[in-house]
Write a protein that binds this DNA or RNA. Structure first.
Lengths: 107, 107
DNA sequence: TATTATTATCGTAATATTGCAATATAAAAT
DNA sequence: ATTTTATATTGCAATATTACGATAATAATA
């Protein structure tokens, strides 16, 4: 078929996978890092910095937004994207919990 | 086009994305968790537990193997998959570094 | 109001992923 | 040697993702 059978998996597993999917593209990793480093939060140079077309950047931003990682406000004529700190820490904890819960019983 | 332009991104960003991609499917998250919980490391019931066809499970295992997360040895007639502890901790550190390096300058 | 600058959406093509039936392979048991 | 049991590979169909040109929407500026 081709579509993921999400309904046969637990909510926890689906949620972790969904978050990982957002980080599963180098452009989105780069975008997150870049936004976090901008002091003034003016992000209209993302297109130049990343090197993808403007509609593509917009799509990637939308994927990041979907899991609640971005807050956007207006500052003059430019849209200002910032990282949602609370959500970011939430995701960090989810990942960390997953990583630390794995134990190594054999081999 | 459709293919990711990996060449325009840094090695760090590409590697993190590649790892995230493996975790970006609930079946693979579930598989990793299940394997880690099996004391005797006999994993031939993965097909029943996860609920996907045997070739599909095999493919997912292969994706996990590709990033070095699995060690496999034989025990009797059954193939025994275990988590590669060193690699696992390596990935945990990569993710943690990424998460903690992000700062929140604005908004 | 017209222009300019910036971001969003639409439409579409190329590529990747997911899933499984059929089949192959490998090792143990009969 | 043949059967059984478990995993891997192949081939293919369905769906998802990635990317961008064209265009729309939005807001500041002239």
């Amino acid at each position: 078929m081709g579509a993921s059978k999400t309904h046969i998996f637990s909510t926890t597993h689906n949620e972790l996978a969904q978050i990982a999917k957002v980080l599963a593209h180098p452009a989105r990793v780069a975008i997150l890092e870049y936004i976090s480093r901008q002091e003034n939060c003016i992000c209209n140079d993302l297109v130049d910095v990343i090197g993808l077309a403007q509609p593509t950047i917009s799509q990637h931003l939308n994927e990041i937004k979907k899991i609640g990682l971005l807050k956007g406000t207006f500052e003059g004529k430019n849209l200002c994207y910032c990282i949602n700190q609370e959500r970011w820490e939430e995701l960090q904890h989810s990942f960390n919990a997953f990583f630390t819960n794995i134990n190594y019983n054999c081999c």
